[in-house]
Design a protein around this nucleic acid. Sequence first.
DNA 1: TGGTTGACTAGAATAAAGTTCTAGTGTCTG
DNA 2: CAGACACTAGAACTTTATTCTAGTCAACCA
Lengths: 202, 202
Amino acid sequence: MRYRGAVSEQGDETKQRVMDAAIAVFSKGGWAGFTIHAVAKKSRVSLGSLYHHFGSIDGIAAAAWSRSLTRLLEALAKACANKRSARASVEALVLGYLDFTERHRAEALFIHASSWASFMPEHAERLGGEKRRAFMPLLVRFGGYVEAGELVSASPAMLEMLLIGPAAETARRWLSDERAVDLAEARRCLPAATWRAVRLDS
Amino acid sequence: MRYRGAVSEQGDETKQRVMDAAIAVFSKGGWAGFTIHAVAKKSRVSLGSLYHHFGSIDGIAAAAWSRSLTRLLEALAKACANKRSARASVEALVLGYLDFTERHRAEALFIHASSWASFMPEHAERLGGEKRRAFMPLLVRFGGYVEAGELVSASPAMLEMLLIGPAAETARRWLSDERAVDLAEARRCLPAATWRAVRLDS
DNA sequence: TGGTTGACTAGAATAAAGTTCTAGTGTCTG
DNA sequence: CAGACACTAGAACTTTATTCTAGTCAACCA
């Protein structure tokens, strides 16, 4: 009694376990340690299953990246969800990014270390689309503030750069060297600075 | 009559050619095509020489990354060099980043695609140090503006995030998909926005 | 109920990539 | 001139990614 539709629960569980293992393996040894054998061993899934589910080691990385990014964006959407003002939303977004980075270090590391341009063509396009879709709720929210004249008028893409640029750069640096950046200071400094960059009236 | 000090000109030329080849190879085929055999073929340097000069394929990537980053930071320093005001410096920095990205696409791609955390321990520490050193002139300049009360008071690291965060994020996006972001709009929008984020008095 | 199908698992065999090794060449230096 | 040194060369070897053959197991159906 294990079937439900075309894909079994067991297969799905296996996939989740593989992605968990991939992130753990990468987190411990970087690209150098990120081999399909290491992922197989860590997840206790055979090579055959790995290739059945993911097609290649890039496929594993792409799936794990995608899942991690989705989680990050969900966390950000949730962080802004109940905020009333544009300013509160912006600040919650920035803090949410920093929080996710600190609380889910391995996943954040994986997101930043493996930009989807690195997985070649086949994955790149699909992942780009997924990213765009996952970003939608945030774009809608902040697009609304632009319409309402509370944020600078700019294309969604530009707004995104201004909103997450400093937080993303900070996350990157912290992930590659925790001493390089003080997250506590970032939490104090970045939300207001980001707000200054995007608010409409000075 | 080819010697000058401990290292020959010929060896140095070879190294440069290898780094050029590495960047070209990566630019064309991403990580998937980035093999030591491909770099050897493209640069027309033998495997023996490659390993003599760089030690490993990671060593090649690290050297190319380091050289590219140095060039970027030199371009940024130059862009700010003759600017008098804090605002002009900030705006020149942002525009310089976007210009470098567009004019040296392959190198910019390499910088962003291979964050030094990816090359494991041995390279990571050295590269971190090199980056910090190369950043020095900019930190001094902008640190001066902080002292003078023209920029928000923040640690050098925080200031760096605010200054290059949005431009770096924009570069990343443009490099992975040129349609995703409009560089012309970025040039219009980011300098002023970055300035708003870092200027002291509102 | 017993055979067929399809998702999934398993790991040996193979192909591809990274690294090491031995053997040079040519130049400088004592 | 002889030894040391920087560099070049590519074959041999090792490690890693991928493919292939051979299963197991649950659902479905004649």
